[in-house]
Measured scan of single mutants.
Amino acid sequence: MDVFMKGLSKAKEGVVAAAEKTKQGVAEAAGKTKEGVLYVGSKTKEGVVHGVATVAEKTKEQVTNVGGAVVTGVTAVAQKTVEGAGSIAAATGFVKKDQLGKNEEGAPQEGILEDMPVDPDNEAYEMPSEEGYQDYEPEA
């Protein structure tokens, strides 16, 4: 019985440690998101679009440190934060509304985080759909 109880105690310690790591990862992701939003706020009209992409990228980098179902929630929060940063930029006159959601080359930025393969159960990952990809044929 002692062996059984000791095993359960060790398992509990492992769960607590994993929860603490997840909590730490979420806190880091939130900190990076805040950094990115402050970065966007300090940019001029020309830099705002690039700044919004930076927020998304920093958040995406930190999301990889967070495991399990938390990833889905962090990704949703990050996307809403990026959308909010863009709205703030438009409201303050840093950028025109028609410039939001495009990178410096004018290509749409939507789907940055949505296409990231995420499995809350950590069982399997699927690649994003290939609808947006084109076949590449090298020139002879």
Rank of each mutant, 00 (worst) to 15 (best):
A19R: 02
S87K: 05
Q99Y: 12
A140H: 06
G14A: 15
A78H: 04
G84K: 11
A56E: 01
G47M: 08
F4A: 00
I88G: 04
L38D: 01
S9M: 14
A91Q: 08
T92L: 13
Q109L: 05
G106D: 04
S129E: 09
A27Y: 15
G47P: 01
Y133T: 07
G73C: 15
G41V: 12
A27F: 12
V26H: 00
T59N: 01
V70Y: 03
A17W: 12
V48T: 02
E104T: 07
V48F: 13
A30V: 14
K34V: 15
G132D: 12
P108K: 09
E137Q: 05
T64P: 03
E114R: 12
D119M: 09
E137M: 05
K23D: 00
V71Q: 03
E104Q: 07
Q79P: 02
G7Q: 11
P138R: 05
T44P: 01
S42P: 01
G25Y: 15
T54N: 09
Y39W: 10
V66H: 03
V66S: 01
E123H: 10
E110N: 09
T44W: 14
A56C: 12
M1Y: 00
G84D: 03
D2K: 02
K45H: 02
V37R: 00
T33Q: 01
I88A: 03
T44F: 13
V66Y: 14
T72M: 15
E123Y: 11
A69Y: 12
M116F: 08
T72K: 07
D121W: 05
E61S: 06
V26S: 00
G7M: 07
G93H: 06
T72N: 15
T33L: 08
E83P: 05
E61P: 02
V48Y: 05
G93N: 04
E123F: 08
Y125K: 13
V71H: 04
K32S: 02
K96N: 15
A30L: 13
K58F: 09
A124Y: 14
A107H: 08
P138C: 10
D115S: 05
M5T: 01
V77Q: 02
T81H: 03
Q134H: 04
K80F: 06
T75C: 10
E114T: 03
T22A: 14
E104Y: 12
E130Q: 11
N103E: 06
P120F: 06
T72Y: 14
E57R: 05
G14S: 14
E110M: 07
G7T: 09
P117R: 04
A91V: 11
A19S: 02
V55E: 00
D135Y: 06
S129Y: 12
S87Q: 15
K43H: 05
K6R: 05
A53I: 14
F94W: 15
T72H: 15
V95D: 05
T81A: 13
A11Y: 13
